[in-house]
Nucleic acid binder design. Structure first.
Length: 934
RNA sequence: GGGCUGGUAGUUCAGCUGGUAUGAACGCUUGACUUGCACUCAAGAGGUCGGGGGUUCAAAUCCCCCCCAGUCCA
């Protein structure tokens, strides 16, 4: 979608007053505002080459600022100007269901604030938000720090309501200009404002980019539209969304060749020395850094073209450029990635193969490969992590608090990756050897993408391993799009359910919100209500209800309505659509008519059990966190009558000991009989009071949040029905655990009487086993062990005996049990095994006989009531003379109603008509004779 | 949430167009020869072919369900 806003949208009084001129850049074609009449291009050092970085070596500000200094300068500037300082939000956007990571400051206020559902924590406000952008991975390094996977976005936000204007475009630009010129001392005529259109996250509006000496240091967005199809629809709330690149501002204030030097300072030297980069030529970096603005790996896929251009502009030859630059870029990227990992893991992201955990894994593996590429001992990676914790731990205390867990999770991840690599290298070796044997000297693209897609082997690693085996690998330029193509097939959306849901939404329109009696009175089992509407002749809508609708992993209540003197309508399901509760009535039952007053009666046994399960779940969650660590988050839950489950994030399989400890802790929490308090808080207050740990169950909609506080054990935002106190649960028993995904463990447990019954079931099972084994319960393990051992021994004894028997029967004894005949120099041995149909025994015997004389063919057979079997084996000499066992069985087996086959030296067959066996044997005998007849 | 790959001896794997697991290598045990850099040679032990169901005369092999593990993408 390309759209331009009219020029007047950007013609601000500020520009006029301060003598800014609007110009069109001849290179990129964009309009920009500047006080410098001599300026021809917009000066932005992008791929259009409108300029280069002129701050490198010549700092743009009055003094150098470190990142924390710049952050403080920014925050205090806006604070001075009437903004309230707000603490940064987490980098894991758990309050949102559409994204995993916070990638801008505005993310903190979407959708509740920007859509007017909840008020902002302050208005206007200022925040410095650590933001993670993994789409910038390939650019991190090559662009000298213009792109980072983690950066701090300074956000000064104002939310303008129809009835309350805070400030809008003009004031926003004024603030920026004042910050840049007065707070930082950047000369006014060096600040350029570029007109631009901003579209993101379904919203849009005009924006201006702020360029200083070639670098975009900020974007001032005026969010005022919702994107609907191709159209922009005006929003009631106009949001000032400014993004100040705090890191970039620090960079221009220091004028270092790269942003990394500005942010990391001395720490970078330590990384260099770990990476074995002995001398870093700052003059060289300065020359290259000036032109780093035109590098953008996404837009111009071919990296080499970019390098060539940089080489042209700097006059440094390509080889030198590559050789000098690549290790440094990699060290930069490594430094950046470890910082991002520290932030992510400190908030409880567990590396895994799904969701945000996968992003952490991706990042770690990349960091690992960068370290390897720099010939760095992998242990140094953890030294860098330590440096990061030291560097950022003061301003972001959770990083310091989680230091141990971060390192542990990373080490675990390292182990897993090294296993994958080892496995993969073995696989490549075998593939290479196989190809070589077939005379193929190159690994196909198909194989290459499969190795990556299914086994996680990046092509460079395959190349390395294959070439060591003497098989070539050519990695196609478009490798990753080839992989993407493999995913293109079959993504069929099944959206039948949404249609039905939509019809309910329409049906409840205009109805008043149902009064939810189950919240203030979770123990009320009977109440009177008026039927407001019957929907789709199956759902009843009441004015007030005690029936809990399905949600938050808690199943719907059941029960019935009584009305009209003795009529009962059973409620089999309850759903909430919007703010209206729908009660599904059993199909066979009569529906009460609209306007009737009904008495609702809850299936209390069911509801009470579910309440126990729900409160119990909060206890298990709290117990798991205490036993396993602060990285534990709920990643899903389903309450049930028989058993309930809770999925938690954790980086390794739970041990039985850990499970026992969780169980004991949870039961201690029950015995402590702690009160369960539920309180509605305004969103901001809830977050301020309890932090983002509240969002255990994921995103919670609405302006007000229901907070469930279980004694001193656990606090969560939760919409379920809860007990008054924990003691009511009685007893909680963990039944089993499983691994749902890498990094997600599932605990299955039962509460109350269901828990007792579960224990009884397990006991019954044990007792049965004990009876079968005829052993006392307490010696069951030893007895089972011994029994299995004995069974194994018996089996191997049987095998041995079979062999011995075969050896005997193949010798002298053979004469007595088998018929032997000589046909043209081949000994034909025929034997009826009677009721023995175990081919294994026939095979053993036959091969013993043949071992003695290769010029032998055996025809063995047997039959029980139901099936007949025939087996033909021929020695090498017999085969040479023409015997073909396969052909014989194929011919003979159909006679007794079956089939069979095999090879020339061995074949077997079976059938279902044992009475025809003799006939088939005769046929087989004749066939052999025929084969041996010249 | 979607896709792909795998589960066979203690380990790494072969076998998978159904028809003997005489499986291979390494490891292990015993013996011989040597004692030096993966010693060599001989003999031997070691398998519910992840689990369950189905098709078939016959399933490691084909089909379905489940479990376990790996991996890519959003």
């Amino acid at each position: 979608m390309s759209k331009r806003f009219p020029a007047e949208d950007y013609a601000l009084p500020f520009f006029k007053q301060e003598g800014f001129i609007r110009k069109q850049c001849p290179k990129c074609g964009e309009y920009f505002w500047t006080q410098n009449a001599q300026m021809e291009t917009c000066g932005e050092a992008g791929s259009d080459e409108c300029g280069c970085y002129t701050f490198i070596g010549e700092p743009a500000a009055k003094k150098p600022f470190s990142l924390p200094e710049m952050r403080e300068a920014f925050l205090s500037f806006f604070e001075k100007n009437g903004h309230t300082r707000v603490k940064p939000y987490p980098v894991v956007a758990r309050w949102r269901s559409d994204i995993y990571l916070t990638h801008a400051s505005i993310i903190d206020f979407q959708p509740y604030v920007t859509e007017g559902i909840a008020p902002p924590p302050a208005n206007p406000l200022v925040i410095s938000q650590p933001s993670i952008r993994l789409t910038d991975i390939p650019n991190t390094g090559p662009t000298f720090g213009r792109h980072l996977t983690i950066f701090e976005m300074g956000g000064a936000h104002a939310f303008n309501y129809p009835d309350k204007e805070v400030y809008w475009k003009d004031q926003t630009v004024r603030y920026h200009h004042e910050f840049a010129t007065e707070a930082l001392g950047i000369p006014s005529e060096e600040v350029v404002y570029k007109e631009d259109v901003w579209i993101g996250g379904g919203n849009a509006g005009p924006d201006v980019e702020c360029i200083v000496r070639g670098l975009e240091v900020g974007t001032l967005v005026f969010m005022q539209y919702k994107v609907v199809g191709e159209e922009f629809v005006k929003l009631p709330i106009r949001t000032v969304d400014t993004g100040y690149g705090i890191d970039r501002f620090a960079w221009i204030s220091q004028g270092t060749p790269s942003l990394f030097q500005a942010i990391y300072g001395d720490m970078l030297d330590k990384v260099y020395s770990m990476a074995g980069i002995s001398k870093v030529d700052n003059q060289f970096l300065t020359r290259v850094g000036k032109y780093s603005g035109l590098v953008n790996v996404d837009k111009t896929a071919n990296r080499m073209v970019l390098r060539k251009r940089v080489s042209q502009l700097t006059g440094i030859d390509l080889t030198t450029l590559e050789k000098e630059l690549i290790p440094i870029e990699n060290a930069w990227a490594l430094t950046d990635h470890t910082k991002t990992l520290c932030f992510m893991l400190s908030e409880g992201v567990v590396p895994s193969n799904i969701q945000e955990g996968y992003l952490a894994r991706l990042l770690f593996r990349r960091a690992y490969r960068l370290a390897r590429g720099l010939n760095m001992d992998i242990d140094r990676l953890y030294d860098i992590v330590d440096l990061q914790v030291d560097k950022w731990g003061r301003d972001f205390p959770q990083i310091k608090a989680m230091h141990g867990e971060i390192v542990e999770m990373l080490k675990m991840e390292q182990e897993k990756f090294e296993d994958t690599l080892k496995r993969g290298e073995g696989m490549v070796k075998r593939i290479a050897a196989d190809l070589k044997a077939k005379g193929i000297s190159q690994i196909s693209n198909e194989t290459l993408s499969e190795l990556y897609d299914s086994h996680g082997l990046p092509p460079e690693i395959v190349k390395q391993a294959a070439e060591a085996e003497g098989v070539a690998v050519e990695v196609p330029e478009n490798f990753y799009s080839l992989v993407a193509n493999r995913h293109m097939q079959a993504n069929k959306p099944t959206e039948e359910d949404t249609v039905a849901e939509h019809s309910l939404e329409v049906a409840v329109q205009g109805l008043p919100p149902t009064e939810l009696v189950y919240y203030p009175e979770p123990y009320t089992r009977e109440w009177n209500a008026k039927v407001l509407k019957i929907v789709n002749s199956e759902y009843a809508v009441l004015d007030r209800t005690c029936f809990y609708p399905e949600g938050g992993g808690q199943p719907a209540d059941h029960g019935y309505f009584a009305y009209g003197g003795g009529v009962q309508a059973e409620v089999v399901d309850v759903q909430k659509v919007g703010r209206v509760v729908l009660h599904k009535i059993k199909t066979e039952n009569a529906l009460p008519s609209e306007g009737t007053t009904v008495k609702g009666i809850l299936d209390w046994e069911r509801r009470h059990a579910l309440m126990k399960a729900h409160t119990g779940t909060h206890l298990v969650n709290g117990a798991a966190r205490r036993v396993l660590g602060e990285h534990v988050w709920q990643s899903g839950t389903q309450k049930g009558l028989e058993s309930t489950r809770l999925d938690i994030s954790h980086y390794r399989r739970l041990t039985p000991e850990e499970v026992n400890r969780i169980e004991v802790l949870a039961n201690e929490a029950i015995l402590a009989n702690m009160p369960v308090e539920t309180t509605w808080f305004p969103r901001n207050e809830a977050e301020a009071r309890y932090g983002f740990r509240l969002y255990q169950g994921g995103a919670v909609p609405g302006k007000e949040i229901r907070v469930v506080k279980t004694g001193n054990w656990d606090v969560e935002a939760c919409a379920g029905t809860h007990l008054k106190s924990t003691g009511e649960i009685g007893y909680l028993k963990i039944l089993s655990t499983e691994r749902v995904q890498d990094g997600v463990e599932r605990l299955v447990y039962a509460v109350g009487i269901a828990a007792v019954k579960a224990v009884q079931r397990q006991e019954t099972l044990l007792r049965k086993v004990a009876e079968t084994l005829n052993a006392p319960l307490e010696k069951l393990d030893k007895t089972a062990e011994r029994t299995v051992k004995e069974l194994k021994e018996a089996n191997s004894e049987k095998k041995k005996l079979l062999k011995e028997l075969a050896a005997k029967e193949s010798g002298a004894l053979a004469e007595t049990v088998a018929e032997t005949e000589d046909v043209n120099g081949v000994k034909l041995v025929k034997r009826d095994f009677g009721e023995e149909t175990d081919v294994n025994r026939m095979v053993q015997t036959a091969s013993e006989i043949i071992k003695r004389n290769e010029a032998t063919a055996t025809v063995f057979y047997g039959a029980d009531q139901k099936t007949a079997r025939i087996m033909v084996m021929a020695g090498a000499e017999a085969v040479a003379k023409g015997v073909n066992a396969g052909a014989i069985v194929k011919l003979a087996a159909p006679i007794f109603g079956g089939g069979g086959g095999g090879r020339a030296n061995f074949a077997q067959g079976g059938g279902t008509k044992p009475d025809k066996l003799a006939e088939a044997v005769k046929a087989a005998e004749d066939a052999i004779k025929k084969q041996l007849t010249p």
